[in-house]
Design a binder for these strands. Structure first.
Lengths: 146, 146
DNA sequence: CCTATCACTCTCCTTTGGGTAAGTATAGAT
DNA sequence: ATCTATACTTACCCAAAGGAGAGTGATAGG
């Protein structure tokens, strides 16, 4: 707000340091892989579909959507295709007249589901603690700086 | 592409069924809570910050960014604030001159980190299988419909 | 005086996520 | 002839995610 730059046109430059935090990693290529998988798997819909398929076995498209709940056909298709591509589910098309497509987890998918099991349990067990922490935080209204 | 609707202006209506998949849930209110927590926690940055804090203990802002890698200050601040709000981390401000702020997991945060442990292990163990499945999928080039 | 440091915040802008609605193909039922 | 059901795809559109980069405030050190 205080016209400062106008007074000294070609000076500063400042460089200002990058905003993205560079190296500091221990294992570059393994890290990159892990990073990518995490990004793919740490997705709301993927986790939800995974859970549904884990406890319902073989499910067809529309039913899968109902079980997941609140997902649009578009996102369901996209999620399931991605999971197929990643080898987490199999997609079986029965060439009958009203089309019938069935999805189910592969061995790989099932193992991922099991790995997530701990998280589901955690959520069921500690979910309310988060709710309480959030309320307390809002109430306390953090006197951060200023 | 073939002007069909113009020929019969006020007829069909079709309703076309909703696109979002309604009820079909077993436990509405618990489901909603779980859903919300999952959405909050199944986030790339949250998972990454959680892991870094889990294995480095107490870390300050810039260092945390470097350890996570590839995160912008903006996202780091946001992620960490949210985690603080949810009671997963504590934020300690030391009122010294170049500011010094330290982050560390709470007991709750640590337990979540442990719950995710299974997923980290899974990724390390099966990550390459996903990579291979993906290649195979691309190569196979799915002859779906058409 | 200038500069650097830290932990942010703010603005600007592009990319992605994701919902809605409609279209498609096909066969059997009405 | 029209309707229905299934599993999609496509087009349109808006909102949120998230990067780039500059600004801030206080102070110690050159």
């Amino acid at each position: 707000m205080r016209s400062a730059a106008v007074l000294m046109p070609e000076k500063k430059k400042k460089v200002h340091r990058v905003t993205v935090a560079p190296p500091a990693v221990a294992d570059p290529k393994l890290e990159a892989l892990v990073r990518e998988i995490i990004e793919r798997v740490a997705d709301k819909w993927t986790m939800l579909v995974l859970e549904v398929l884990e406890e319902h076995g073989v499910v067809r498209f529309t039913r899968l959507g109902e079980l997941v709940g609140g997902i649009s056909q578009k996102m369901l298709t996209k999620t399931v295709r991605q999971m197929e591509r990643d080898g987490l589910v199999t997609r079986t098309v029965h060439p009958v007249i009203p089309p019938r497509v069935e999805y189910q987890l592969t061995e790989l998918g099932r193992s991922l589901g099991e790995a997530f099991c701990g998280v589901w349990i955690w959520v069921e067990r500690h979910g309310d603690e988060i709710a309480r922490a959030r309320e307390a935080f809002e109430r306390g209204a953090q006197p951060r700086s200023k």
